[in-house]
Amino acid sequence: MSRICELTGKKSMVGNKISHANNKKKRRFNINLFKKRYFLIEEKKWIKLKICAYAIRIIDKIGIKNALKRFKYGKKRK
């Protein structure tokens, strides 16, 4: 299962875990993902998204329709 936000495209990062003795070990910083359902009123259907907490905040502020338009959801992404 890939840990990528479907709306914003955020991914997990790679960094170092540093001990008190300054030993460095590779680790991953995962993003805060949630599986959410939203209802599109114009199309009268539900959509399921795997999105990060940042995307949920944006949807709460501007609405699902504007958020999908802003992040070009459904368009081909690189």
Results as ranks from 00 to 15, higher is better:
residue 19 S to I: 07
residue 58 I to M: 08
residue 58 I to Y: 05
residue 51 I to G: 00
residue 50 K to Q: 11
residue 63 G to K: 05
residue 38 Y to C: 04
residue 49 L to S: 01
residue 48 K to I: 15
residue 68 L to V: 07
residue 20 H to S: 07
residue 22 N to M: 14
residue 49 L to P: 02
residue 74 G to Y: 05
residue 40 L to R: 12
residue 26 K to N: 12
residue 21 A to P: 00
residue 70 R to I: 06
residue 17 K to E: 04
residue 64 I to M: 11
residue 68 L to M: 15
residue 44 K to E: 09
residue 19 S to N: 06
residue 2 S to V: 09
residue 6 E to S: 10
residue 28 R to A: 01
residue 76 K to L: 14
residue 42 E to F: 12
residue 15 G to N: 02
residue 28 R to T: 02
residue 37 R to E: 15
residue 35 K to W: 05
residue 54 Y to T: 00
residue 37 R to N: 15
residue 77 R to W: 09
residue 63 G to L: 06
residue 52 C to D: 13
residue 24 K to E: 08
residue 37 R to V: 14
residue 34 F to I: 01
residue 51 I to Y: 01
residue 30 N to W: 14
residue 61 K to E: 13
residue 39 F to C: 06
residue 48 K to P: 13
residue 42 E to T: 14
residue 15 G to R: 07
residue 1 M to F: 11
residue 26 K to R: 10
residue 12 S to F: 11
residue 21 A to M: 10
residue 58 I to H: 07
residue 49 L to V: 04
residue 55 A to H: 03
residue 71 F to P: 07
residue 64 I to W: 08
residue 5 C to Y: 07
residue 57 R to S: 09
residue 41 I to R: 10
residue 54 Y to M: 02
residue 54 Y to N: 04
residue 56 I to K: 10
residue 8 T to D: 13
residue 49 L to M: 07
residue 55 A to I: 01
residue 1 M to S: 13
residue 61 K to S: 11
residue 10 K to S: 00
residue 57 R to C: 01
residue 28 R to M: 00
residue 14 V to E: 15
residue 49 L to T: 00
residue 3 R to Q: 01
residue 75 K to Q: 15
residue 17 K to Q: 10
residue 65 K to N: 10
residue 24 K to D: 02
residue 32 N to R: 01
residue 58 I to C: 04
residue 3 R to H: 09
residue 73 Y to H: 11
residue 60 D to C: 06
residue 48 K to E: 15
residue 30 N to R: 11
residue 16 N to W: 14
residue 2 S to D: 11
residue 33 L to Q: 08
residue 33 L to E: 05
residue 16 N to H: 14
residue 21 A to V: 04
residue 12 S to V: 00
residue 60 D to L: 06
residue 39 F to V: 04
residue 4 I to P: 01
residue 61 K to Y: 12
residue 73 Y to W: 14
residue 68 L to H: 10
residue 8 T to Y: 10
residue 42 E to H: 10
residue 40 L to E: 10
residue 74 G to S: 05
residue 39 F to K: 08
residue 27 R to Q: 14
residue 13 M to D: 15
residue 8 T to E: 03
residue 45 K to T: 13
residue 52 C to Y: 02
residue 7 L to I: 12
residue 68 L to A: 03
residue 24 K to H: 07
residue 57 R to W: 00
residue 35 K to M: 01
residue 9 G to F: 05
residue 69 K to G: 05
residue 38 Y to T: 02
residue 33 L to C: 03
residue 54 Y to A: 11
residue 52 C to E: 03
residue 14 V to D: 12
residue 2 S to A: 01
residue 40 L to C: 12
residue 3 R to Y: 08
residue 65 K to D: 10
residue 29 F to K: 12
residue 34 F to V: 01
residue 49 L to D: 00
residue 56 I to V: 03
residue 31 I to P: 02
residue 59 I to K: 07
residue 18 I to A: 02
residue 65 K to Y: 09
residue 66 N to C: 05
residue 34 F to K: 14
residue 78 K to C: 08
residue 77 R to L: 15
residue 63 G to S: 05
residue 10 K to Q: 09
residue 15 G to Q: 05
residue 73 Y to R: 08
residue 67 A to V: 12
residue 19 S to C: 03
residue 42 E to P: 08
residue 28 R to P: 00
